[in-house]
Amino acid sequence: MLECQHLALARGGQRIIEDLSLSLRDGEVLAVLGPNGAGKSTLLAALCGELAPLGGSVQLAGRALSAWPASERAQRLAVLPQQSSLSFAFSVDEVVGMGRLPHASGQQRDAAIVHEALQAADAAHLRGRNYLELSGGERQRVHLARVLAQLWPGAAGQVLLLDEPTSMLDPLHQHVTLNAVRRFSAAGAAVMVILHDLNLAARFADRILLLHQGRAQALGTPHEVLTEANVLQVFELPVILSQHPELGCPWVIPR
């Protein structure tokens, strides 16, 4: 469980987030939506301790984020950045295995977890490949497997933060990835995921935070948040709101 109260954030002297309170609950997937520059990544940076807040607080399991010893925090909180700049020829297994660094669970257990995490991210067929020879989407899935391995098998009290994990994926793997994330959160971990696709958020998130110019425009279930008025105001995009014919979740169609 990760909680922030009255968070105020700035980058380079410019205020980006104002008075934001949010709590990531165990076992839930929270999607963060908002136009470019709304402060999504900045919020994520503050929630994982990369960015010190101007005001307000961030607490992991009831304890200030900065008060956690680094390796204990890493056992509870994993972060998938938008892009990774790894330029060394590690094998896929080695990259995913780095997720086990905060744990002392032994080589055999680690190898089993690496395999399971790769399967969860639908990347098991990449085992043994050179990371540098993978496509952008394959790399993204390998890094997802890495952060899953870091928290594997997932438990209440853990938090997973994902910054646009589907940005380079084909439609099938967008769904595979978010399904994997859902299954992972079902084991108890709280997940926050930044997305751009409104319909993916509507389908896979328990709750949605809609950010507009650094403030929470709306926070609630997909049905509560994804309204024609909200989408028009935040994205300046006129839409028709419908329902998924089979799942019943909101379905956003641009006019």
Binding site: Q75, A78, L86, F88
Partner: peptide, 20 residues
Amino acid sequence: AQGLNALLLGESEARHLGVD
């Protein structure tokens, strides 16, 4: 050695893996 491996992922990635 392990910290150096993690550092190759990126500084913030290494930090998130608990490396000082």
